Simulated assay, not measured.
Amino acid sequence: MTSSECRDLTHQYLDAILEVNKTTNLTRIASQTEAEILHIEDSLAGLPEIEAAPEGLYGDLGSGGGFPGVPLALATGRMTVLIDSVKKKMALVSGVLDELGLSDQISTYDGRIEELALDRPGSFSVLTARALSRLVSLLELASPLLSKGGQLICYKAHVDDEELEEARAVENLVGMRLVSRRELVLSDGETERSILVFEKVGCGKVKLPRRVGMAQKNPLKPRS
């Protein structure tokens, strides 16, 4: 696929999602101009990181309306799974993918991340998570899905020292390690993004996944 074809398909996907959004809430962003920045530009902000990640299957955690998953899938050509527990959203996204002829490359999973980790442990080379949860929870959720050397790419609006320290304190427990962090501002001049990359370096010291919801309700803490 040429870069112009990729760009056209990405915009066709966005237009289709915004059309669906008129009757079903897939995204809080309804303005075309705002969506271009906060869905397409923001999704592609992590493109350098995903291109540098190991080759293989890509999964987008908490994908919602398919962002950043679909733009990144189209830009990289990776086989992709959009993962979200809201079945209605995933059904609508799946319908749009079918209409655009993208279903052979991009599939959907309408269940909990922990359930997918039981079904497909170690299956993914790279995962993204955009504004989904605290870093400590994301590390726990991502670790059992990733193959060794696989990477989790987190998009965050703001990461304070406490959140980062909380995540780094459990890296050994979950077999993950922070390998890069990049800050940027989108073209609106005001939307700040931190792109953090964690790599799966080993098996960790706790059995994962834990029960559904535990990563958020009772985040891991370092052992004394």
Rank of each mutant, 00 (worst) to 15 (best):
M1S: 11
S4Q: 14
C6W: 00
C6I: 14
R7V: 01
R7H: 13
D8Q: 14
D8A: 15
D8H: 12
L9A: 05
L9C: 00
T10M: 13
T10V: 12
D15Y: 05
L18F: 12
T24Q: 13
I29A: 04
I29L: 07
I29M: 02
S31K: 07
Q32E: 13
E34Q: 13
E36P: 03
L38R: 15
H39P: 13
I40R: 00
I40T: 07
D42E: 14
D42S: 07
D42Q: 07
S43E: 04
L47H: 01
L47Q: 03
L47W: 11
P48R: 01
I50M: 11
P54H: 07
L57Q: 05
Y58F: 15
G59A: 15
G59H: 11
L61P: 06
S63Y: 09
G64I: 08
G65T: 03
G66S: 05
G66K: 05
P68G: 10
P71M: 11
P71R: 08
L72K: 04
L72A: 04
G77A: 09
G77W: 10
L82K: 02
S85M: 10
V86H: 12
V86C: 04
K87E: 13
K88S: 14
L92E: 00
V93T: 10
L97R: 02
L100Y: 10
S103N: 12
D104M: 06
Q105V: 00
Q105G: 10
T108F: 08
D110E: 15
R112N: 11
R112E: 08
R112P: 01
R112D: 02
L116E: 03
A117V: 04
D119Q: 14
D119W: 00
R120V: 00
G122M: 11
F124W: 03
F124M: 13
L127C: 10
L127V: 09
L127D: 05
A129R: 06
A131T: 09
L139N: 06
L139I: 08
E140M: 04
E140T: 00
L141W: 06
L141N: 08
A142S: 15
K148P: 14
G150C: 08
L152H: 07
I153K: 00
Y155E: 02
K156F: 09
H158G: 10
H158D: 13
L164Y: 01
E165I: 00
E165C: 09
E166P: 03
A167Y: 05
R168V: 02
A169V: 06
N172R: 11
N172E: 15
V174T: 01
V174Q: 09
V174R: 03
G175I: 01
M176I: 01
R177E: 15
V179T: 13
R181G: 12
R182I: 01
V185I: 13
S187W: 13
D188C: 09
D188N: 14
G189V: 11
T191S: 15
T191Y: 08
E192A: 14
S194Q: 13
S194T: 12
S194E: 14
L196I: 11
V197K: 00
F198R: 02
F198M: 03
C203V: 04
C203I: 02
K205Q: 14
V206Y: 07
V206T: 04
V206R: 08
L208T: 01
R211L: 06
R211E: 14
A215I: 09
Q216T: 10
K217A: 14
N218E: 12
N218Q: 12
P219G: 05
L220T: 01
